[in-house]
Design a protein around this nucleic acid. Structure first.
Lengths: 347, 347
DNA sequence: GGTTGGCACACTCCAGGTGAGAGTGCCAAC
DNA sequence: GTTGGCACTCTCACCTGGAGTGTGCCAACC
């Protein structure tokens, strides 16, 4: 009872109350208010003693002598690890989200962007979506389409519902039949292979083909690189940055700018998310637990999802440390659930 | 010289100096400072008299008795209409922008998004890009592609470099040959037609086709609607909203929120831009000249561009009234120039 | 021993006051 | 028409005092 690590039930209740009250109102909370709103079965003096003990344990802190208590990062940590009660996702919620996302069969990028926007809107915070890595997909379809005398369109579809289409320049010597022939030929050679394997295969194929098709194959190689580079570098989608930037308890203009810049540096965020995606469970990064310095006073919830076999992406929610964890986690669980079902439909 | 509308050369010089100084520093400017920084050939007392006259004419205003002058909206108006000197766009600039935008032949949406991002980044304000209306394009290509046993991909390409691809569900009865056949058949019937004409044609075509293809044609109709609805509703791209929201001279949190919301209501903005796009020249909306209330203390520069014959889009720059007009206008001119060249390449 | 009411103390926050600084407007002189 | 001089006005930054709030401690109690 007197130790610094063991938490009596009453202390747990008080800690929980402080955290939830602070999440709700964003105001430091004192012993009297706690007494009034929660039936803790003791007087305010006792609560004060307990609050002092919780502060001693570094779960709570004092903005100044005469303000109430607010949770520390460690306080939030105890809260999410031990005190948070998650109610299951309701059918209505899931149904509603499902309807929004499944409006029409789209490609991965659109689905993710849509999901991201949804999470940002509902949570009123910032949402991140990380697409699975490009090398975890195989080529499902490849087709050249004549568009004009000078241009053709190449369309690649992968197992991850990624559609990549790009205009190619075609010299006058290349006929429509050539394009048709190349479509079939490349299909035979490349389908079922990863983009990386395709890239390795291309030089071999180039050898076997007539000279007039070489330029086309070179351009295809660029497109395949794009599947890596572009999709790779643009794997991260961020929505609702303004929600966070305009949040009322975040009025430090310098920090705002820094955060805005950090959210723009997609590479960095992407890299961090990737490295933490080894676990297949929800991950919570509170304050300084975030690698990115600009997020040191924010919380990131990151929920992985399986886009297809062995291909994992993640959906994230970035908000203030005093975000509504229960709601956030439920929202992510709900959306990733819908996402997994939408993506698992054989493409 | 004493009238309220005629501007002597000295008054012009003073007004210009006040506007440019205010654009530069964002601080009200007084007679002494004006004297120090600009060689106006008279004393500060004379300048004060002129400032008073310009205030009388409502080109300048006084935040309070003892502050310097700042331009009124009408002051800015005079400035952009008569006092602003535009230097031509340099080759380096144009070349640099051209390189960024022409990295690879992309579809309209990507090019516009890229251009928009570029303008936002360079200007450090907010950039808008409005794609041409969907009915100003004709179908250039239509193709069904079998992707799996249950799914096909339909690809539409229009004269505006718009690529629309979407997964369709295919019943077991439909063979790959059917898809091939349908691609050719629909090409014959629909190419060269506007999306709207295509939509009208579809019911007719449906009558002529075997029953097992009806579902496919219905889904195609949905896709075509999307060319209208989606492309129509998402014609506006906004980039760099955070630049404006975090701008230091814009610290009213209520207004920030309102502006953020307004920028999210794409329909509204789109509509306004469309209505003003009758002119083919740069348009400048200063403060209350903006229809959208939330922009009443901002300036919008809107530069139309011709995406293809008779199909006009616009590129916009939204910033504070004290934005650098010369730079902004040059930037828009430069980017729309590059854009027109990129899009005019026959798709 | 844990719990309680009482009370002094510490601290913030807001309102009101003060003085420096800046820029004007006016006026008389040129 | 232009100029220097000067009183006036207003903001901004700083300080100050009082109300309010919540704590920490203590002695008394169960």
């Amino acid at each position: 009872m007197t130790g610094t690590s063991y938490l009596s039930d009453r202390r747990k209740a008080i800690l929980k109350a402080v955290v939830e009250e602070y999440i709700l109102n964003g105001q430091p909370i004192g012993s009297e208010e706690l007494l009034r709103k929660y039936s803790l079965g003791c007087s305010s003096a006792t609560i004060r003693a307990e609050l002092a003990a919780l502060e001693e344990m570094e779960y709570l802190s004092h903005p100044h002598t005469s303000a109430g208590r607010i949770p520390t990062e460690q306080g939030y940590r105890i809260y999410v690890d031990h005190l948070l009660v998650l109610s299951p996702v309701s059918f209505q919620e899931e149904e509603k989200i499902s309807q929004v996302l499944n409006r029409q069969a789209q490609d991965l990028r659109n689905i993710l962007a849509e999901a991201c926007r949804l999470v940002a809107t509902i949570s009123t915070y910032t949402s991140l979506a990380l697409a699975p890595q490009a090398n975890q997909q195989v080529m499902r379809h490849i087709h050249f389409v004549p568009v004009s005398a000078k241009q053709a369109l190449v369309i690649l579809v992968t197992s991850l519902k990624v559609i990549q289409d790009q205009f190619l320049e075609v010299s006058a010597e290349v006929s429509e039949e050539d394009l048709e022939y190349l479509s079939h030929y490349l299909s035979r050679r490349l389908l079922g292979k990863t983009p990386w394997q395709c890239l390795q295969e291309l030089p071999v194929i180039r050898e076997e083909q007539p000279a007039r098709l070489v330029s086309l194959l070179n351009q295809l190689s660029t497109v395949l690189h794009n599947v890596f580079l572009y999709e790779q570098s643009e794997r991260l989608i961020v929505e609702g940055a303004e929600n966070l930037l305009l949040a009322s308890d975040f009025r430090n203009s310098f920090k705002q700018r820094r955060l805005a810049d950090a959210l723009d540096r997609r590479f960095l965020l992407q890299d961090v998310l990737d490295r933490h995606l080894t676990s297949r469970n929800l991950q919570i990064f509170i304050g300084q637990e975030n690698e990115v310095v600009e997020m040191h006073d924010l919380t990131l919830l990151a929920m992985p999802f399986e886009a297809s076999r062995y291909a994992y992406g993640a959906l994230g929610l970035l908000g203030p440390m005093r975000m509504d964890y229960a709601k956030g986690i439920r929202l992510l669980a709900c959306v990733t659930g819908v996402l997994e079902r939408a993506l698992s439909q054989e493409a």
